[in-house]
Amino acid sequence: MAEVSHQAYDPLATGSKTQQARSRGIVYVLLTFFALLYLSPLLIIFMNTFRPLDEIVREGFISVPDSLSLKYWGEAWGSFCIGGTCEGVSRYFSNTLLMTIPATIFSTALGLVNGYALSKWRFKCDAWVFGLITLGVFLPAQMTLLPWAFVLGQIGLSNTIMGLVLVHTVQGTSFTTLFCRNYFVAVPDDLIKAARIDGAGFWRIFRRIMLPLSPPIVIVCVIWQFTGIWNEFLFGTVFTSGENQPITAAIVAFSGSGTGERHYNVEAASVIFAALPPLFIYVLGGKYFVRGLTSGAVK
């Protein structure tokens, strides 16, 4: 819905020509003002990843750079010291990647099958089952922290990336089931009925009818899960420590500590590293990102 660009009317097409030109000008001035406000913080931080430290300390982040260098990116990636280990942000970047990719795949796959079963195979209490799964979307993480910590400890996954994969898969499946169920509901029931009369079973119908229809919702799920899990902080900081933390926790670890010398340029580069993958996904699949947002919010 959000990507409709055509319009049947033009609200600005009233009044005289000069009036129209003036209001159009105001529109673009306001849009530019807000665009700068939205872009500038990240651009400023990006610029500072190339500046020497003494220059940032002397002049602050918001000033014209005198000299530029690429070496702080390398330092941030490979040798920056975070919490005692000097392996740079690469370690935490790959931690997050190792957590995000499996959790995204598992929760999307589960969501697809669940959404299909819930929308196309009516059975007793299916509304209750769906209600229970969706409640997982709204439950605040704080309510689950202590039980998760206990459970992860019992199954030997505390302070591991596997543990975070499990937590995110369980939580994420609520979202993906909600998305997929609402998407599959729109598939005509007659299609399924005809296939059943032809003798097709649950999985055959899934493979032959539902899967070919599902790419749009798969993309929505993958984008939503990937950005959500990549950006998550609370579970990461509670269930893991030290070298096993995701990148969000690592950023808080180095930038939150008030003591010691600050390495603004290297820290800025690390922050950009943490921002890049979800930004990349967003720019690549913006349309689907918006679609997930709207369906996730309204339904």
Partner: peptide
């Protein structure tokens, strides 16, 4: 795209910046 991109980056990055 410009107005929506902050939603793609984490609160941690937003807050730090």
């Amino acid at each position: 795209t410009i107005f929506l991109y902050p939603l793609a980056i984490s609160f941690i990055v937003t807050g730090t910046v």
